[in-house]
């Protein structure tokens, strides 16, 4: 089967419950926004293929549950991500303060050289803003990440955010860095079952090449 893309990038959306991760993702993948979304239980993903400087890039974007307790389930899957969007809500102070905790979470569970980006969502609600643009900017400087304010509702900066993150990953990759991205070992959950794995089949042989489809997530 011919591959219809040049690169596959796995991205991850994290941040507090209710900041709008699912809305941001739907805006990007389906170009729609409605008020009938339900809270995310566990994990979900969407695909969109984009053109970037003449290359077809398939973005596989994982959307996670924001409620803290779900981290016990989802963090094991951070390790395959090449890019992570940390999302807060500009009308919610706590969601902004928690970005620090989410970053700590990434440092513990994701690959060392994962590309990170901080997103302040719901910027259409200027009248209810409690986190200034400057503070968002400041935080991103502190952590050395890119920063953007978005609105899933008005489709503001959503494309730009994903394209920027994808471009950064691509750049890093083409410079020959980031080779370890996606090679974060295993979750360790099936150690006692490794014999079964061996019997399974050897499809995983290629999992350590960078842009193949077998990168463990």
């Amino acid at each position: 089967m011919a591959r219809t893309y040049d690169y596959l990038f796995k991205l991850l959306l994290i941040g507090d419950s209710g900041v709008g991760k699912t809305c941001v993702l739907f805006r990007f993948s389906d170009d729609s926004f409605n008020n009938s979304f339900i809270s995310t239980i566990g994990i979900d993903f969407k695909i969109r293929t984009i053109d970037l400087d003449g290359k077809k890039i398939k973005l596989q974007i994982w959307d996670t549950a924001g409620q803290e307790r779900f981290r016990t389930i989802t963090t094991a899957y951070y390790r395959g991500a090449m890019g992570i969007m940390l999302v807060y809500d500009i009308t919610n102070e706590k969601s902004f303060e928690n970005i620090k905790n989410w970053i700590r979470n990434i440092e513990e569970h994701a690959s060392q050289d994962v590309e990170r980006m901080i997103i302040g969502n719901k910027c259409d609600m200027e009248d209810r803003r409690v986190v200034s643009r400057d503070r968002g900017q400041q935080l991103s400087i502190e952590y050395g990440t890119k920063f953007m304010e978005t609105s899933a509702k008005l489709n503001h900066n959503i494309e730009e955010a994903f394209y920027t993150l994808a471009r950064d990953i691509k750049g890093k990759m083409e410079r020959g860095q980031g080779q370890t991205v996606g090679v974060g070992g295993t979750t360790g959950r099936y150690q006692q079952d490794s014999t079964i794995a061996a019997q399974g089949n050897n499809l995983c042989k290629n999992r350590h090449t960078f842009h193949c489809d077998f990168i463990a997530f």
């Binding site: 239980i41 566990g42 389930i73 899957y77 959950r189 079952d193 794995a197 499809l203 463990a216």
Partner: peptide, 26 residues
């Protein structure tokens, strides 16, 4: 099913957690 889970290194909690948490709702 188990050999597939091991091969892909995925846990049932991630795949089916919602089935149990929501008693199959949604």
């Amino acid at each position: 099913i188990c050999s597939t889970l091991v091969r892909l290194d995925v846990g049932l909690d991630l795949l089916l957690g919602k089935w149990f948490l929501c008693w199959f709702l949604e």
